[in-house]
Amino acid sequence: MSVIELENVSRAFTVSSRTGLRRTRREVRAVDGLSFTVEPGEVVGYIGPNGAGKSTTIKMLTGILVPTGGTIRVAGVDPSRNRMKLAKRIGVVFGQRTTLWWDLPLKDSFAVLQKMYGVPRARHAENLATFVELLNLGDLLDVPVRQLSLGQRMRGDIAAALLHDPEIVYLDEPTIGLDIISKARLREFLAEVNKERGTTIILTTHDLDDIEALCSRVMVIDHGRQVYDGTLAGLRASQSAPRTLVVDLASSLPAITVDGATVTKVDGPRQHLTFPTSTSAAPLVAQIAANYPLVDLSVAEPTIESIIARLYTAATPTP
């Protein structure tokens, strides 16, 4: 059975504005007719531009907001009607809003959470030891939360969200404020939690490296509507973003001529050519090798950033 089910879900807000002495009100749909399911153990990237409706969706999934229309079931229950029951089955990290106690040492926040969720002491100690090691929190346990850096606090928040063994975890920008090494370690940690515990993870992020490293499935939302749901490979194919052939020649030359490809950049002896994703690079390479002093070449696939940008452009309504 699906752990998350949304059917034709909408959420509207009333926005007031004033023009002179006249006040007007209008309805804004943050989420509009959203339907999808998530299976146990999936790691889903839920992405979109600012204001697309991502946070509103997560708030409805956790029961913080009630949908204007449609139905939601998470772990078999209606989130808005069963918030207390659902809280023990989910973990949440909301971006820069900490769930830790600001003036308490990190270890005391973890102790409070053990009491709140009623986690058996032995299980809490086991989880805590695991997460402290994997997230490198040992030197931070006695530090008040207010003295932690953003990246340190984020690691603490992620540990806090997982200490009670939730079935589902919602993570909003989990690698914000982390350096490259810490990001890699956190991604490894999340992949391990998913693999070993079967935890379902819903990840919202602007760091698309997180998506590529962790997610088997991507959902893209724009203006409250779903514009894509599938694999990263399927997303790349759906947008037909061009590939790039990077050619190194023995000497600097004007833009070379190759059937089926277009030179987009000349940088001394290096030239960049774009060609359709559906086209094989082999005939292009053969042409270049036969007609130009080729030294080296490489094929660059379209970046996920460029593909998402194309998708947003296609989904944006024309004024």
Rank of each mutant, 00 (worst) to 15 (best):
L162T: 05
R155K: 15
D142L: 10
A261C: 14
G95Y: 08
R123A: 11
T62S: 05
A213S: 14
D179H: 10
G53P: 05
A52P: 13
L214P: 02
N82Q: 11
L6E: 04
D259C: 02
V299R: 03
D267Q: 14
V285K: 11
I158T: 07
R270K: 11
S80E: 10
T313Q: 14
A237V: 03
L190R: 00
S240T: 09
V258D: 01
F189K: 01
L135C: 14
I64C: 00
D209W: 01
I64N: 01
V193D: 01
T277K: 04
T37F: 00
G76D: 00
G76K: 00
V31Y: 01
D259S: 11
V38T: 01
T62Q: 02
T318F: 06
L137D: 08
V119S: 07
D210R: 08
A309K: 15
H164Q: 09
V295D: 04
K59S: 10
P144W: 05
V44S: 05
E42K: 05
L65T: 01
E173P: 04
A213P: 03
R81C: 06
V285T: 10
T204R: 00
E188G: 13
G268V: 12
L34H: 00
T303M: 08
F110R: 00
E196D: 04
V28S: 08
A237D: 12
G51V: 12
A289W: 03
Y228P: 02
K195E: 13
I47K: 06
K85I: 03
Q114L: 00
P105V: 05
R73P: 04
S298T: 04
S149C: 05
M1D: 12
G151W: 09
E7Q: 12
M60P: 04
R83K: 13
I221T: 09
E133N: 15
A250E: 15
L163R: 09
L150H: 05
N50R: 13
A289Y: 03
K265G: 11
A160D: 07
T175G: 02
T19P: 02
V74C: 03
Y117I: 00
M219P: 08
G177C: 06
G53V: 04
G95P: 06
L214S: 07
F110I: 02
I90M: 07
V258I: 08
V31C: 00
M84V: 10
F275P: 04
A255N: 13
I47T: 04
V193Y: 04
V66E: 14
P269A: 15
I58D: 07
A282Q: 14
P269T: 10
V3N: 02
A159Q: 11
S182T: 09
L186Y: 02
T313C: 06
T231S: 15
L178C: 09
D248T: 15
R81Q: 13
K85C: 03
F13E: 11
V44E: 03
A281P: 09
P242Y: 07
A300K: 10
T264K: 14
Q152C: 09
A255I: 11
V38D: 00
T71F: 08
Q152H: 12
I202A: 02
L61H: 03
Q147K: 15
V93Q: 10
R155W: 03
